[in-house]
Design a protein around this nucleic acid. Structure first.
Lengths: 222, 222
DNA sequence: TCCATTCGCTGCACTGAGTGCCACCTGCCT
DNA sequence: AGGCAGGTGGCACTCAGTGCAGCGAATGGA
């Protein structure tokens, strides 16, 4: 029944537009009662994003079962990849939805609130991991935002290609950039005394992220 | 008339809640016709954010008149400070609105779309400045998101303090962190040969942003 | 086999946001 | 005086979303 409603809704949305389609039109096409629509979808917008609720739960579960010693930044990047996977499971559907949300302001606003919930999930996890350190909460929020922005950048360019590009590679590349900007910040240097000194040498003109990767490696090396 | 409507709306919102207040209640208290409300505010939510439209225009104008040689990251940080200034102009009002949006999901969603427009303005400016460089668009989006997240983190903690903390200092600190994560990435080293080498030494355990600042300074030094 | 309870579905009536239309009134120009 | 333009109010309408009551089918027990 959910599937029937989603199918009917998308047929009409693509045919005559989102705002030009009423809930009555959808239920008439699906052959169900109007009241049942709102039993399955709390609002008309929800029918456009039928699987995000499940994906959000998956992400929360994924973060909850993180090993204690995992690199938090890498972990939230992996969590973000769950969203990509959901989009990639159904490329045609995702591309249709993308074109829909791009032109309907109401749907864009709704999508923002969905993205916001993903971002909060990542930020909450990071707050738990970085909470004690100086500016831990600030860092958690900023890293979550950067990871989400990188993910969405790659996701959108994949959607713009109508699902032809390699989504996985694009997201990997984007997340690598976000990760490089924040490095292994939260991992405390284990078993080092503050007298230890790390020296990094770089040519001028080297992209900063390469320099950062060197620093990261230097700090990671025992 | 705008002011009268905003005043009446907030009195009722604080008194009996946002959802329990109808537009009819507002216009009755303000003594104007219902139709006039929607002439000034396209939706009920807009009356809660009466000055964001103006602030967004200010930000766009500010970015448009940026000098060519300005550091783009610093520039978007300064642009973000315009938003803080708007909040700080009317602390009592901002705090009331904060408590309102915190508990009403519909207003939170609306606020997200407002924040998104600020973020897009910053990202568009950065895209123009970084567009040519490798991953320019990705970097633009990620930096804009990080700056907005840092700003909002500081703004919210100021609002939670009921406007008692030093908002400017908190935002400066948060933006400095975001800036440090991305450094002077876009500024190409001027007049240097790739053979020049920069050496940075840091103690283990030093916060990464301090290390980054050293690098930044080292690169900036002729 | 028959009754009772429950659960999912439906129709109905209602509230409230948002819109289109027209009438009005006020100030202004000719 | 008579048009004219812009801000305003009133009215009726659409449509999303909700509360309520009825209805049928499946389940479960005697």
């Amino acid at each position: 029944m959910r599937e029937a409603l989603v199918a009917a809704a998308f047929r009409l949305f693509l045919e005559r537009g989102y705002e030009q389609t009423t809930v009555d039109d959808i239920v008439a096409l699906a052959g169900v009662g109007r009241r049942s629509f709102f039993r399955y979808f709390p609002s008309k917008e929800d029918v456009v994003f039928p699987d995000h609720e499940r994906c959000l739960s998956d992400m929360q579960a994924f973060l909850a079962r993180s090993p204690e010693d995992a690199d938090p930044v890498r972990r939230v990047c992996d969590a973000a990849r769950l969203v990509l996977r959901m989009y990639a499971e159904n490329p045609a559907f995702s591309v249709q939805r993308y074109h829909l949300t791009k032109k309907v302001p109401g749907l864009r606003a709704y999508e923002l609130s969905v993205v916001w919930r993903y971002e909060r999930a990542l930020a909450e996890y990071l707050r738990g991991r970085l909470g004690g350190r100086p500016d831990g909460i600030l860092r958690a929020d900023v890293i979550a935002a950067a990871v989400v922005a990188a993910h969405n950048n790659a996701l959108r360019s994949w959607l713009r290609s109508d699902g032809r590009d390699d989504a996985g590679a694009a997201v990997d590349h984007a997340l690598a950039y976000a990760q490089s900007a924040f490095g292994d910040v939260p991992v405390p240097p284990r078993g080092t005394s503050p007298e230890d000194v790390v020296v990094v040498a770089a040519r001028r003109g080297t992209p900063l992220w390469q320099v950062l990767r060197e620093i990261e490696d230097a700090f990671a090396r025992d």
